[in-house]
């Protein structure tokens, strides 16, 4: 198992390097000029010096290596400095966003809480709803509950978040003014009233996102339960005289959760991708919205860094899913 983990970690490194290179090369084709919005009164030699300072005229591989050094070396050092109060990174150039004129990671750190609150909570809610639905659907296969579950998850598959989100706004923010349609990031939660406000403004985006999660996971849970319900050990457990509750909720559920847990791990990055749209609808200024504005503003360092962070998330979650599978299922042996 340990050798497997080490091997997977080692193969993850070239993958990530390749991905960062692909993103970099793609962005390198961008036609925009980061100095285009500077005043025209700047003399050409000063403009040239600004270009030199940003390193815009150096060859592509130098710029890539510079970005890689900043991402993999300087930024972690800054993080250590911030944690431990040391001065390792003094005088080193960080990755600077062209539109905010501030270090990219400072802005990302500002945006992460919103994304994590909304997206993370939505994922949690989705999982909490999906698992019971999947269990009951499988146990009562072809019952009305199962049919309803199939239908609802088909709808969850088919209705894209940009439609379900807008529908939620129409119904629950315009027709029935229960929830706000815009997420207010400046809200400070310090008493019960503001907590209520926070919960209310989170309800709609969380609902939209968790509908997607529920649709996929409940189908998966159902299939996995159905797989296990026909096994011999279930009959044995029943024959031993165990109650139906113990058979289903202890014996079958534990075994069926194995593939589902890996799917849950695999779904985490995709929920960040889906959150780009949901954040745009509800004006949550999280990571997805940051990426969209950076793409519009031609802020290449920001786009590069964010896209790469998403890629790291995907690779890391794949790794976690593989490891979980090996840990949970004794039949799987990596060697």
């Amino acid at each position: 198992m340990l050798t497997f983990i080490i091997r997977r970690l080692l193969t993850a490194i070239p993958t990530l390097v390749l991905i960062s290179l692909i993103i970099f090369l793609l962005l390198d084709l961008a036609p925009g000029d980061p100095l285009a919005d500077q005043p025209l009164s700047i003399p050409p030699e000063v403009r040239q010096r600004m270009r030199d300072a940003l390193g815009l005229d150096s060859p592509a591989y130098i710029r890539y290596l510079l970005w890689a050094k900043q991402f993999f070396w300087v930024e972690p050092l800054y993080f250590i400095d911030w944690l431990a109060g040391t001065n390792f990174a003094d005088g080193m150039q960080r990755i600077v966003s062209w539109q905010f004129r501030a270090p990219v990671f400072d802005i990302i750190v500002q945006r992460i809480p919103q994304t994590l609150w909304v997206v993370g909570l939505a994922y949690l809610v989705g999982v909490m709803i999906a698992l019971p639905i999947g269990i009951i659907s499988a146990y009562k296969q072809y019952s009305w509950f199962d049919q309803l579950g199939t239908f609802v998850s088909m709808i969850g598959f088919s209705v894209p978040p940009f439609f379900s989100g807008v529908l939620m706004i129409v119904f629950f923010a315009i027709m029935l003014p229960w929830f706000p349609s815009i997420y207010d990031t400046t809200l400070v939660v310090n008493d019960f009233e503001s907590l209520g406000k926070q919960i209310r403004q989170m309800t709609l985006p969380v609902l939209v996102l968790s509908l997607q999660t529920t649709a996929q996971l409940s189908r998966f849970m159902r299939a996995s339960m159905l797989d296990n319900l026909n096994h011999d050990y279930v009959r044995t457990a029943r024959a031993k005289g165990m109650t139906e509750k113990v058979v289903v909720l202890v014996h079958v559920l534990r075994n069926s959760l194995i593939p589902v847990v890996t799917v849950i791990a695999l779904g985490i990055p995709s929920i960040f991708g889906g959150a780009i749209i949901t954040e745009q609808i509800f004006k949550v200024n999280g990571l997805g919205q940051l990426l969209i504005t950076a793409i519009y503003a031609n802020d290449l360092p920001m786009v590069q860094t964010l896209a790469f962070i998403f890629a790291v998330l995907i690779v890391a979650c794949n790794l976690i899913a593989d490891m979980l599978y090996g840990l949970l299922d004794p039949r799987i042996r990596y060697d």
Binding site: I23, L27, A311, I314, V315
Partner: peptide, 14 residues
């Protein structure tokens, strides 16, 4: 492993 939606957006933009 590529973050597809961001890359799609970037491709369309470029």
């Amino acid at each position: 492993a590529l973050p597809l939606l961001p890359l799609l957006l970037v491709m369309v933009m470029l």
